Amino acid sequence: MTSTEIYTTSAVDSDPPPQTRSKTSLFCPDCGHESAVTGDWTAEATENSLLLRCPDCDTVVQQR
């Protein structure tokens, strides 16, 4: 006959995961650059929108 050991854990027993990024971070899909929305992105105003470009590779990461 085999025996079974049961281990229980509680969410209270473990520490929450560390918060290393802000919820307002943007990521460049091409090169992986990351920064806060108000960070080092290059802003370019067009007639109808505002483009945020990656400072490393010039990819548009957000259009408002």
Rank of each mutant, 00 (worst) to 15 (best):
T2I: 07
Q19H: 08
R64M: 10
D30E: 05
A43F: 00
L50C: 08
T24N: 13
A36Y: 08
T24D: 15
E44L: 09
T8S: 09
T4G: 03
S25H: 14
L50F: 04
R64I: 06
A11R: 08
V61T: 06
T20Q: 10
M1T: 08
L52I: 02
T46M: 04
I6M: 09
T2K: 13
D56H: 04
L26D: 00
R53G: 00
T4W: 06
V37H: 14
P17W: 11
I6E: 15
T38K: 13
A43H: 03
R53S: 00
I6C: 03
T38W: 08
E44K: 10
D15F: 11
P18Y: 02
T42C: 10
A43S: 07
E47M: 12
S25K: 13
S14G: 07
R21G: 05
W41R: 02
A11S: 13
S14Y: 07
P18I: 05
T46C: 07
P18S: 11
Q19Y: 03
C31E: 10
A45Y: 05
Y7M: 03
D40Q: 12
D30A: 01
G39Y: 02
Q63G: 01
S49M: 07
K23D: 15
E34D: 12
D30K: 00
C31W: 09
P55N: 07
S49E: 13
Q62G: 01
T8C: 03
T20G: 04
L51N: 15
T59E: 05
A43Y: 04
P29H: 02
T59I: 01
N48I: 07
V60F: 01
D40K: 09
G39H: 12
Y7V: 12
A45P: 00
S3L: 08
P29E: 06
G39M: 01
T38Y: 07
T9P: 01
A36T: 15
T9A: 07
V61R: 02
S3V: 12
Q62R: 04
Q62P: 00
T4V: 12
P16Y: 08
T24G: 02
D15C: 06
V61I: 08
D13N: 14
S25D: 13
T46A: 12
T20V: 14
C28N: 08
C31F: 09
T38G: 13
P55D: 04
N48R: 14
C57S: 04
L50W: 06
W41Q: 05
A36N: 15
R53A: 01
R64F: 13
W41Y: 11
C57A: 05
V12L: 06
P17R: 15
P16Q: 07
F27N: 03
T46E: 14
T2E: 12
C57L: 09
I6D: 09
S22L: 15
S35L: 00
T46Q: 09
S10C: 04
T42H: 14
S10H: 09
E5T: 08
T59V: 03
T2A: 10
S14T: 14
L50K: 12
Q63W: 01
T20A: 08
C57V: 09
